[in-house]
């Protein structure tokens, strides 16, 4: 858990263990997922899958990418649950609202 400045925080001589390798691996995972996201609409120009399925896949990839950034880069994984609740609750609300608006205003994507 990452506490910035408290009495238990390491001093200058008590540095944390580096997680640089993990961050780089996560970057490449995100990069591959972004590549799939970009390729999907291009590939589907030939209409090999239903538009609804393409949209569902894109929204799924977006959600997983967001969750990975939050868990590993924003360190929500292992941090206080309260921070996660404060941030994830609005995200769930927005995602539900977005799905509702897709259904209402772009029924062809539903």
């Amino acid at each position: 858990m990452a506490h910035g400045h408290d009495e238990h925080a390491p001093t200058e001589h008590e540095a944390h263990h580096s997680h640089a390798k993990l961050y780089v691996i996560i970057f490449f995972v995100l990069l591959v997922m972004t590549g799939i996201e970009i390729a999907l609409p291009i590939i589907n120009k030939a209409e090999i899958m239903a538009k609804q399925l393409e949209v569902a896949l894109l929204l799924g990839l977006m959600t997983i990418k967001g969750a990975i950034v939050m868990m590993f880069y924003m360190h929500l994984k292992g941090d206080r649950r309260m921070f996660g609740t404060l941030f994830v609750f609005p995200i769930v609300c927005v995602l539900l609202m977005m799905l509702g608006f897709f259904a209402l205003f772009q029924p062809e994507l539903w």
Binding site: G4, H5, P10, T11, E12, A15, G66, V69, Y73, M74
Partner: peptide, 26 residues
Amino acid sequence: AGNYMAVELGGLYWHFVDLVWVLIFT
């Protein structure tokens, strides 16, 4: 290593900006 909260807060904001782009881009 004992005082990095200012960097962590700046980082949180920056990652949030990246998250918003993930949403906007899709």
